[in-house]
Deep mutational scan, measured.
Amino acid sequence: LQAFIKTLTGKTFTVEMEPSDTIENLKAKIQDKEGIPPDQQRLIFAGKQLEDGRTLSDYNIQKESTLHLVL
């Protein structure tokens, strides 16, 4: 599935991932794409901060969901 990552500066980019991917995997993909170390990334979806060990499906993240990236 493709999801949108929106930063506080208003920049939006897309990442490809599977519902079974962990938040940790997602942070690694963001690092590959944007060069931001995972330990500096905080991802917010539906008002909740996402925990590394959980999966996208745990948070009911669907295709074309928008996640907010806070540094």
Rank of each mutant, 00 (worst) to 15 (best):
L1V: 11
L1F: 15
L1Y: 09
Q2E: 07
A3H: 05
A3Q: 04
F4Y: 12
F4H: 13
I5M: 02
I5V: 08
K6T: 14
K6Y: 07
T7Q: 06
T7K: 04
T7N: 05
L8D: 14
L8H: 14
L8N: 14
G10R: 03
G10N: 04
G10F: 03
G10I: 03
K11A: 08
K11E: 09
T12M: 11
F13M: 04
T14G: 05
T14I: 13
T14M: 13
V15D: 00
V15N: 00
E16I: 12
E16T: 12
M17R: 00
P19R: 08
S20F: 11
S20E: 11
S20P: 03
D21I: 05
T22A: 03
I23G: 00
I23M: 03
E24I: 09
E24T: 08
N25P: 00
N25D: 13
N25R: 14
N25H: 13
L26W: 00
L26P: 00
L26I: 08
K27S: 01
A28S: 10
A28L: 15
K29P: 01
K29W: 06
K29C: 04
K29Q: 07
K29N: 03
I30T: 00
I30Y: 00
Q31D: 04
Q31A: 14
D32G: 08
D32M: 13
D32I: 14
D32Y: 09
K33P: 01
E34G: 06
E34K: 08
I36R: 02
I36Y: 14
I36M: 04
I36F: 13
I36G: 01
I36A: 03
P37Q: 06
P37C: 06
P37G: 04
P37F: 04
P37L: 06
P38C: 07
D39Y: 12
D39P: 06
Q40F: 09
Q40Y: 10
Q40E: 10
R42C: 12
R42M: 13
R42T: 14
R42S: 10
L43A: 00
L43F: 04
I44Y: 15
I44L: 11
I44V: 09
F45T: 03
A46K: 14
K48R: 11
K48D: 06
K48L: 12
Q49T: 14
L50C: 02
L50H: 01
L50F: 02
E51M: 10
D52I: 05
D52S: 07
G53R: 09
G53L: 08
G53C: 06
R54Y: 12
R54N: 10
R54I: 05
T55W: 04
L56D: 00
L56C: 03
L56M: 08
L56P: 02
S57H: 09
S57Q: 12
D58R: 01
D58H: 08
D58V: 02
Y59N: 02
Y59E: 02
N60M: 11
N60R: 05
N60P: 04
I61Q: 04
Q62P: 12
Q62I: 12
Q62D: 13
K63S: 15
K63P: 15
K63A: 15
S65C: 05
S65D: 14
T66K: 06
T66D: 04
T66A: 07
H68A: 06
H68S: 08
H68P: 02
L69R: 00
L69V: 06
L69F: 06
L69Q: 01
V70R: 08
L71A: 07
